[in-house]
Design a protein around this nucleic acid. Structure first.
Lengths: 338, 338
DNA sequence: TAAATTGGAGTTATCGGTAACGCAAATCAT
DNA sequence: ATGATTTGCGTTACCGATAACTCCAATTTA
């Protein structure tokens, strides 16, 4: 491997001079600068970031940990985070925890040992607390995305889950739906809790009774096995006229299962959900959703993270950004009133 | 930051002994091992991967560079690559070039300076050649995904683009379509070239004439501005009865534009495309596609990469895997025969 | 013209680890 | 009992870069 010393030897200068040329610091004559640069090109020199980070104690690399790389919400978020990072001269590494605490733990390990400058993280849920405490302990700045974790204070970007859920239920109720079920993410995920809360509040406000058995909690991530979900649908009696899905993944899976039963949407059953479908909402925009500003989640979160890193000591109080969600009415809800 | 020396001091041993405990190498008594481990826990020690990599000359980190993080083909592929990497004890970092050569160059820089052990890369196209030559020059093993780059010999995983395109056209022709247009990726991308070739061959085999103006080449990635694409559609005269899209992104965009013109699919115009829609093919499975084995692309590519890394010297000849594509007939094609 | 300043570059120590070697004490073989 | 091994751990050097300091020569200033 070509090192700074190889360059130095060939250019008849000291290693320090080469370093100065690379970083454009200190005082060097244009002549030696040109000479060194020429030798660097000739020898195809590439600086060793690890050696540099070791002495500088910073990497200028940030880490983005998402929970589901196949979900358009997170991929769009990633684009936002990437744009903000690049704009500020940081490189961004991605990880995908797959809504799995162990995978998350694996990435935490990479994060700590790699000594990245900061982390943007969508935690798998409340059990992520120890992971966040680790980051705090090792003084690694981080910003949470989409999900709060009780027990830790930090910068965070959230969606207005409660209000969004209310809007979905209101929308259904306004069309005359009275039997509304909820398929939701795990109650160990704050956004799922808020969505449930919004659902329950909206039922009450619309004068509808709450039936516990109409609420099913599972993972926000895609299931390899749909039998449990299918069993819950079977157990619904009477069949609700509408289902609220806690996110787009659940909506897709539920729709698949309903169709297998020969049910048509919205003729036989209505469905609405959280999160839009990225580009695919374009081709068959038939599901009524509460769309979140995925790109903004990433962009603003990254901006907060970088602010935090660059201010460090005099950083000020923790910031919390709540992004509004927008109801997009399409054609997955049947009108039951006349 | 807690270092190996802090541990050594507190445990009354040398730094080397601590290193031995961490790596479980050399000879240490159970007693000292336990003592050191205890101190490490007490002090929340985390090894500094950069210092370690610097001396070991390897990172056990691999890099996956894809061209469109919002495309289900690539996200599914990513899952496959991740699984294979994890299984072999490697950590995986992701990058997203956005079909953009400059962004790709940026990631190349990260790759070289970070000294990752290997790279799995879907190149943006033929102009990526210098980037690959850089990797070769710096002796970083890499495996190409989905796209060949003339001028470089290496391990590669490809889809059978020509055959896939033939199947799509055959499918249309078998339903009586005679005016078939093609929206394709850039001709600087090998898979786009092969798809075009398959399209042209299939036209000929079906006795259909080739009209240059019915072929439009653009990027495989999502466009921020659809006017050019829309202008091409306007220019088509006569309007073809069917369109073949070079990938799912193009299909989605074209469908959107067609619908804006009030055209219904498949009643007014038929459409078929390369690549499935990931989970979203589930909810409205109306587009006939040639589905590629995205997960396998990632899994097998990663496996090849790791083989290459672990054998290094006696690696054998370059390997080329061609994954078959499967026609999935749905309802986006109108039957024109009686 | 002598003193002070400044420009240009080299020296040395260090970041946090690990490999290779060395060496005393403990264990083994004869 | 004594030489030969083995065990357990320390020393030293180095991975590739940079910060802080030093030093000489050229230039400016008084």
């Amino acid at each position: 491997m070509v090192t700074i010393y190889d360059i130095a030897a060939k250019a008849n200068v000291s290693a320090m001079t080469v370093s100065r040329v690379i970083n454009n610091t200190g005082r060097i004559s244009e002549k030696t600068k040109a000479k060194v640069k020429k030798v660097m090109e000739e020898m195809n020199y590439v600086p060793n970031q690890m050696a540099r980070s070791l002495v500088l104690q910073q990497t200028r690399i940030l880490f983005l940990l998402i929970t589901d790389i196949t979900n358009p919400f997170y991929t769009t978020l990633s684009r936002g985070a990437e744009d903000a990072a690049t704009k500020n001269g940081y490189r961004l590494l991605f990880g995908n925890s797959d809504e799995n605490l162990e995978k998350e733990a694996g990435y935490m390990n990479t994060i700590l040992t790699t000594r990245v400058d900061g982390v943007l993280i969508a935690p798998t849920g409340d059990p992520s607390l120890p992971h966040l405490e680790q980051l705090r302990l090792h003084n690694i700045p981080f910003v949470l995305l989409d999900r709060e974790v009780p027990g830790i204070e930090c910068d965070i970007v959230l969606g207005d889950s409660k209000e969004g859920a209310r809007q979905l239920v209101d929308q259904l109720a306004s069309q005359g739906h009275q039997h509304i079920a909820l398929v939701n993410g795990s109650s160990s995920v704050s956004s799922a809790r808020m969505r449930r809360l919004g659902y329950e509040e909206a039922l009450k406000l619309n004068g509808l009774p709450l039936h516990e058995e109409r609420v099913f909690e599972t993972s926000f991530g895609p299931r390899s096995d749909l039998t449990e979900l299918d069993a819950w649908i079977s157990s619904l009696d009477p069949m609700p006229s509408a289902i609220v899905a806690g996110n787009n993944v659940l909506a897709v899976e539920v729709i698949g299962l309903l169709r297998k039963r020969g049910l048509r949407i919205p003729d036989d059953i209505s469905i609405v959900c959280f999160d839009d479908f990225g580009p695919y909402s374009e081709i068959d925009p038939f599901i009524t959703v509460v769309a979140q500003q995925a790109y903004q989640f990433g962009y603003m979160g990254m901006q907060m993270l970088i602010d935090r890193i660059q201010n460090r000591e005099d950083a000020g109080p923790w910031k919390k950004i709540v992004l509004p969600a927008e109801l997009v009415v399409r054609s997955s809800v049947k009108r039951l009133l006349d």
